[in-house]
Design a protein around this nucleic acid. Sequence first.
DNA 1: TAAATAAGCACGACCGGTCGTATTGTTTGA
DNA 2: TCAAACAATACGACCGGTCGTGCTTATTTA
Lengths: 212, 212
Amino acid sequence: MTVDGRLARGERTRNAALDAAVVLATQAGLDGLSLAQLADALGVSKSGLFAHWRSKEALQLAAIDHAVTLWKQRILAPALRAPRGVRRVRALHDARLDFYASQALPGGCFFANTQFEFNARPGPLRDRLAETYRQWAVFLEDLVQQAVDAGELPADLDVPQLAYEIDALGMAAAMHSRLLDPDAAYRHARAGLLNRLRPLCPDPTLLTEGTS
Amino acid sequence: MTVDGRLARGERTRNAALDAAVVLATQAGLDGLSLAQLADALGVSKSGLFAHWRSKEALQLAAIDHAVTLWKQRILAPALRAPRGVRRVRALHDARLDFYASQALPGGCFFANTQFEFNARPGPLRDRLAETYRQWAVFLEDLVQQAVDAGELPADLDVPQLAYEIDALGMAAAMHSRLLDPDAAYRHARAGLLNRLRPLCPDPTLLTEGTS
DNA sequence: TAAATAAGCACGACCGGTCGTATTGTTTGA
DNA sequence: TCAAACAATACGACCGGTCGTGCTTATTTA
């Protein structure tokens, strides 16, 4: 942000466009995202968008990055306020489900939707989404590893395995909550984590404490 | 199927079209499915498709139903050959993962892809997909309930909860296997089920036996 | 300090192409 | 001969993208 009126205006438009693009792409898909529709939502002309991104694909890539920063702000940051270890893992899981439940993105989960959209379509968008997903997986594994290091989980735990299972619970919630019963989805996803941790966790209070 | 050559020919075209439609829609999405592309793949003109379905949406709905029958043939039927109870639950889970690994549908999982495509888009297609998913969930819960009834799982088990967790493992595999490492995805999905069942299952041999 | 130039930004009009769809005509087979 | 199956063609709508233009603001020049 700058006091420079010119740059400030462009920056504002860019940000508004990316915000709207994430919302629209979450509903219609990154491919189904229409530039005319996006321009209308912004109250700008379609051709004006091409002043900021040289092609639709460039805008789509920017939208992915923008969704990552939103995800970091809304889910990672709150979770990192919880103490390291099992409680932080639980906080991350809960923050994710809270974000879904908040309907901040009415279309569900941007990443789940777009990753399923592109998982059979090679190209730059798929690569970017895959890299994004890989970073998320690494982040989740790190948090589980911290719980192991803190002695809150068994030393011989298969960390990537548990991280996979946690991610699966959240991903299923993203779909289940839109297609069937939202309440049941979030309840099952939360209980699923506790069910899985219970036999692993020597200190049961780590599973009963609230995370907020 | 009939000996009537005229009807047989139409029936053959319809079946071939639905087969191809499921494959293409798995890759490009139900909406991204192009009738021109579908007609080309069949060696048929685009307008000919409208002789069999009055609109694209009608074809899409038929494709969903067709994918259901394929799913029943390829996944449900093999699983039902396993003995009732925990072994049948495992067999279903494994059959699902085997189907993904077989690459019979190069685009991944038809249902996961399309359900994420439409989970924010109300309409007949979304309704049909939701109903399909509900039936799958019921089927899975029934199988778990049978294991409870057979005394192979605790009588006070939360059946829908466990069914949700099993489904989540498979769904995550459908995405993980396309975007990151397929081998890791299937391994984690399989191990995930055993990890979850182990504390519940009084008879450990039910978890070590092969399922094929 | 004032004028001139350049750059950022947004607009409306328009392009070629593809989409789903309707119409009309031809082939096919009992 | 009759109806089902298919082909050919065209239509209107929408797609991403380009072009020329004008307005606003920053930078350079006199």
